[in-house]
Design a protein around this nucleic acid. Structure first.
Lengths: 211, 211
DNA sequence: TATTTTAAGACGACTGGTCATCTAGGAGAC
DNA sequence: GTCTCCTAGATGACCAGTCGTCTTAAAATA
């Protein structure tokens, strides 16, 4: 079996992998555009053109726009989970410091991208939370995974003595999520990272701290 | 001068008032639909049909969809401001209690409407914060007015001794805004008022409280 | 007061464009 | 030659916004 691409003979697996790569390209671009323009504001054509995949090919990769969005949601959250896990697995960092570093990193990045977008989860929760059951379910799952990770960090920090034990860790995890989302919204309209910095200073450096 | 409408003679002023009433109807319905389906997800025709105003008449009331949305934003926030002011002017309530009652009321209402919509400001901040300058400005103004009111409540509560004075009132006001927005998002996908109740319990009944 | 003039408001049909989705036929693999 | 996969183009619905016509109020005239 020969698959000519650059003149070399390559294994058949790659033909499936090729498709997978295109799928990911679509998802990457989709995440970007859905985040910046919302679900209804983003046309499939925009995404396809940018990625360079023909107009009619979309339905070879995804069964509908709605399902595409649902998949984009889980595709979006993955890197955040991996990154936070990375910080948490760093043996030099205690739980609270890991969290702080993680958020500091996010703030730094958002500063460089010019406050565009915010968070795909937040934007879609607001924009189509009621409309699409598929997407709502995907949002819920993504948020649960993400929250669970923050929860483990907080629980560890409690054991390590850096975070108050008289506050429920689960409640604190929710608080982190809610506050971050709200801060991102305010960041967008104020065009400033101040809300995000305030988030860190208020919760991670004051309210949660075991003094 | 006679103006026949229902057979009765009415004053000329009402003809202008009539227009104003239709404008408000459009805004009321627009708020509802923008909140539930987002800016791009809401067609002018939907709104007009529901209110019973013909397609061609829209531009007699508003100069564009974008401007309509911007006006819907300030139209939306007004009742909330009025209501919170009402609680704050109640001489029987201290500042903190007024805030708590206000939020309890909101929670109760959202429970009855089946967690639909959430907050127009939050949804639009996420959905088109980057897209429309007009709307972003309107969002910013609305949010500032709303925040200022919460701030005065907190300042008063500090003077009254119910709220901590070692926390900056301005920071607390931001925290209220951010957290409420985030809680509303979570409410939508979890279909539960729990996030909102947690918001009250955590901030207004714990973190802010002068113990 | 009765009649005519004028101008603003209301309105349905229409425009050019875009949307998500479908399908028929072509390209390439075996 | 057969078969599977892919995609250009088509499809009908819908979008925000426009236009020319018609209604109607009120000013002007008598």
């Amino acid at each position: 079996m020969k698959y000519k691409t650059t003149g070399r003979i390559i294994a058949p697996m790659t033909i499936i992998a090729r498709k997978q790569i295109k799928r990911e390209k679509l998802l990457d671009q989709g995440v970007q555009m859905l985040m910046e323009q919302g679900y209804h504001g983003t046309g499939l054509k925009d995404i396809l053109n940018t990625v360079g995949i023909p107009k009619g090919s979309f339905y070879n990769y995804f069964s509908s726009k709605e399902e595409f969005a649902a998949e984009a949601i889980s595709h979006y959250i993955e890197p955040f989970i991996i990154r936070l896990k990375g910080h948490l697995q760093n043996p030099e960092l205690d739980g609270l410091t890991a969290l702080k570093q993680y958020y500091a990193e996010l703030i730094n990045e958002v500063k460089q991208t010019g406050y565009k977008g915010g968070c795909l989860l937040g934007n879609l929760m607001g924009g189509l939370g009621d409309t699409s059951d598929i997407c709502r379910h995907s949002l819920k799952t993504a948020l649960e995974r993400y929250k669970k990770l923050q929860l483990t960090a907080l629980l560890r920090a409690q054991q390590e003595g850096t975070v108050r034990v008289d506050l429920n860790a689960d409640t604190m995890a929710d608080l982190l999520i809610d506050n971050w989302q709200g801060a991102l919204l305010r960041m967008k309209i104020e065009q400033s990272v101040k809300p995000l910095q305030q988030f860190v200073a208020t919760l991670l450096e004051d309210y949660f701290v075991n003094k």
